[in-house]
Write a protein that binds this DNA or RNA. Structure first.
Lengths: 197, 197, 197, 197
DNA sequence: AATGAATGAGCCTTCATTCAT
DNA sequence: AATGAATGAAGGCTCATTCAT
């Protein structure tokens, strides 16, 4: 029973299905049929709305990115001090929306794909730049610029590292300990402000 | 002209070819023909020696692992103090053997595969445990046990994060700055020894 | 805004679009969406008016045929002598309306289709018969019947051959030289009237 | 039971199957499965030996071309006088090898494809050039050069036209009457040598 | 009158894998 | 020891066609 105005509904459903499928498989090695099946539509329809598989995958990545961006903006909005901003960024990186097995797997898969696909790499760079600028908005006022840059890089690396290492753990992701680790890094770096680079 | 004792030669050649192929593709999405072609043999021979593709891939991973292990032992052998041990571990993580586009891509690909394949996950855990115990052999004597554990986790995450983020950078990997970042983390943690957390 | 009496307009537009699409592609291998797109309507509408794709194609062929017939009648109307009739038929075969890349491609494509589809073959036979009778109306009075038949067949073959061979030439079709070749054939046959075969 | 040295056998079988399939369908619109099926192998094998469908089709065309070339050389070898050469060329154009429903259909289909595919067009031009030079080797000595050129073009057009018009006839191709028609054209042109262009 | 929504069927192509030699 | 031959299975994608609105 075709109703009108289904396009946005289907697009959303297919992107969600893609995330679910990628999460379940743990890689981008999912079939269009699989994704379409999860979304409850035929593979042909997925092609109808997204063209090729790559396009759907990129749209999925873009969706993850925009969610991450929205979460970031929301978190930053409630943060008063620069220090608060840092914590807010760290917190949302491991929030329940982001730090979930499915989403983690999807991010990881996209990282791999980025090595091959320039389009994916471009998208991932957007994420990296955004994370960096968010972190710098907190770290900048608290220490010398070049040092802030380095700490931001360290925080970002640690976050991504914790994401990737989730693959090795059993059970549900432990966001709290991940957050504590990064916070401790930041805290120590702030405390050692007088000292070295 | 079949010669005797070719098995080890072929196995080595095929594993090297697998690393090369994975490195070039940037993912495990390589064909047996591709690998065999690089090794200069027929795909049938690859099956003859390794059974299935997954077996070859696991053997490849195991090879990477043992190389990493050997590098680690070598590095540790020359380190006198605990502090030296830490630096040695960090150094070899970014050594020219390890921190190369091809090897990085392979590691990353295996991380992804680990999410699906228990066998791969097991192998990757071996790596994680080994890295951890190596780090602990340096950090243990220098700070309280539980804190050392956490710092080791932080170092490991940072290393893996720097690996993964290589995918976003252009040009050759910059090992020096990566090492500096991790060393600085360790240094600051050691300096803040009296304090938290 | 549905208007009444749109049917003939749409049918005409779709048939023109089909010719354009076939001409552009150089074969009948065009999609309904393509044709509908050129006509500025939805593929569903094309089905609504024509049933199946084959029906639209046949209608297109019929349109070409009726155009050819009309051109022929017009040309014959102005021809006084039998000899004039022959020249008129040859001329319209290579007139600007007929001897155009698009139309040529369409004719050729239909010839191929005729091998498979009896309906198409029937239509094409109508064309052949019409061309033959037109030619005979000129050749008949000028030579013995059986010889006229053969010359008509030769002229028809030459015309179709020149059409098909257009596919091999670059640039715009050269109608003049094509006409000259056929006219020369006719002329020589008329001159050799007394002789063979 | 795989034996060695099958490649040439399979290639031949697949090309023959392609001709058969195209002949049966009357167009290039045949599937790889169909062709492979006729050849008695799997579709995968067809791809194994020919790469893509287009490559198999081109190889098929090239085969037809080389057969035509071989037939032409053979025919020309036995012709003593220029006049004999002309007749020989005409004869082989309608020989039992060439003027068969299947081969005719294949030629026609390739003509259509040539409008789209530059590679096919190139191949077809080879055929046209060869036919032209063959004809000129007979017509050249018998009349003025520019006139010979035109007669050669006329003969070629008539031959191709008779091929295409086969699609309209029922029953087996009538080679004899086709040959007679072309021969008569040549004869008349030769007889009218003194006269017009 | 017209279309967006949706799909089944089918095709090309790739690839891991097997087997006889 | 090594490979050419061969295929089954599966995936991406296209397209004519239908249907409710």
């Amino acid at each position: 029973m075709p109703r009108i105005g289904m396009e946005p509904v289907r697009r959303k459903a297919l992107i969600d299905a893609a995330i679910a499928a990628i999460g379940a498989r743990g890689s981008l090695d999912v079939t269009m049929s699989e994704i379409a099946g999860i979304a409850g539509v035929s593979p042909a329809l997925a092609h109808h709305y997204f063209g090729a598989k790559d396009d759907l995958l990129q749209a999925t990545m873009r969706h993850l990115l925009s969610e991450f961006g929205r979460d970031g903006r929301d978190a930053l909005a409630g943060a008063k001090t620069p220090r608060d901003r840092i914590s807010a960024i760290i917190a949302i990186s491991f929030s329940q929306t982001q730090f979930q097995p499915e989403t983690i797997a999807a991010w990881l898969a996209f990282y791999v794909e980025a090595q091959r696909s320039p389009a994916m790499r471009r998208l991932l760079k957007v994420y990296a730049r955004r994370l960096n600028s968010n972190l710098m908005s907190g770290l900048g006022p608290l220490m010398e610029r070049s040092r802030a840059e380095r700490v931001a890089e360290g925080v970002a690396a640690m976050i991504d590292g914790l994401y990737i290492r989730r693959a090795l753990k059993e059970g549900a992701p432990n966001a709290a300990s991940a957050i504590a680790l990064v916070e401790n890094y930041v805290e120590t770096m702030l405390a050692a402000g007088d000292a070295a680079p």
